[in-house]
Amino acid sequence: MLSRLVNLIPRDWLVYMYKYMPSKKFKNWVVYRTQHKFMIAVLGVLTNEKGQVLLLKHTYRRDEPWGMPGGWMELEQPEAGLVREIYEETRFRARITGLAKAIYDKKPARVDLVFRGRIVGGTFTPSVEISDYMYCDPGHWPQGLPAHQKKLILDILARN
């Protein structure tokens, strides 16, 4: 509600008010309350030395249990968030080699940061979220991998 009201104020007035507000804490509070909110997800297209793609079997997905490694970022660098998520869910240690793509979606409002990388160590241990893993050849997907992830993985692999 507050963000809608603030959006009615001309931009130059907002800049002036922000510039001359006496309290930095209050400025930050106003900015936080008036800006749109969205989540940031980190996802990985991780391959082994044969070029096979790592997929994880998610325990909380019934119809399409297989998917890319990833999760929601916390207050951290994106690459660190992906490495943390992979370790928490599988006990694999990952090395991220670069950002491949950023995707915006409205439902829910979020940005997906898709990285390339490799697994560099660790021994798979099932978790409350992940029951199994597999490496598969691109295009030879397991049943239960969402179509949008198949397309995304092939798109990322084609960029290299």
Score class of each variant (00 low, 15 high):
residue 87 Y to N: 14
residue 76 E to R: 14
residue 42 V to I: 04
residue 78 P to V: 06
residue 34 T to K: 03
residue 43 L to T: 11
residue 17 M to L: 15
residue 64 E to G: 01
residue 81 G to W: 03
residue 36 H to N: 12
residue 21 M to I: 09
residue 17 M to W: 15
residue 31 V to T: 09
residue 35 Q to N: 12
residue 89 E to W: 04
residue 33 R to G: 02
residue 13 W to R: 13
residue 23 S to H: 01
residue 36 H to G: 09
residue 40 I to D: 07
residue 85 E to N: 15
residue 49 E to L: 10
residue 93 R to N: 09
residue 59 T to C: 12
residue 24 K to N: 13
residue 30 V to N: 03
residue 36 H to L: 11
residue 62 R to C: 03
residue 19 K to S: 09
residue 87 Y to V: 04
residue 43 L to P: 00
residue 27 K to D: 03
residue 38 F to W: 14
residue 24 K to M: 12
residue 48 N to W: 01
residue 71 G to S: 06
residue 15 V to P: 07
residue 29 W to M: 10
residue 30 V to Q: 01
residue 62 R to G: 01
residue 91 R to T: 11
residue 32 Y to Q: 12
residue 43 L to A: 11
residue 77 Q to M: 11
residue 83 V to K: 15
residue 23 S to Q: 07
residue 69 P to I: 05
residue 29 W to T: 10
residue 59 T to I: 07
residue 19 K to W: 08
residue 17 M to T: 11
residue 14 L to A: 05
residue 74 E to C: 10
residue 28 N to R: 12
residue 72 W to T: 12
residue 68 M to S: 01
residue 54 L to A: 06
residue 17 M to D: 10
residue 93 R to P: 00
residue 63 D to S: 12
residue 67 G to V: 06
residue 57 K to T: 01
residue 75 L to G: 08
residue 57 K to M: 06
residue 33 R to H: 12
residue 48 N to Q: 04
residue 46 L to D: 04
residue 35 Q to Y: 00
residue 22 P to V: 08
residue 63 D to Q: 12
residue 84 R to L: 00
residue 17 M to G: 11
residue 74 E to Q: 15
residue 49 E to Y: 10
residue 78 P to E: 01
residue 93 R to F: 08
residue 33 R to E: 08
residue 49 E to Q: 14
residue 91 R to W: 00
residue 16 Y to L: 11
residue 10 P to L: 02
residue 80 A to S: 14
residue 18 Y to K: 11
residue 22 P to N: 13
residue 76 E to K: 12
residue 65 P to K: 01
residue 49 E to K: 15
residue 81 G to L: 00
residue 12 D to H: 14
residue 42 V to E: 05
residue 90 T to E: 07
residue 32 Y to F: 10
residue 9 I to E: 05
residue 78 P to A: 06
residue 65 P to T: 05
residue 70 G to V: 04
residue 90 T to G: 04
residue 45 V to W: 08
residue 20 Y to F: 13
residue 25 K to E: 11
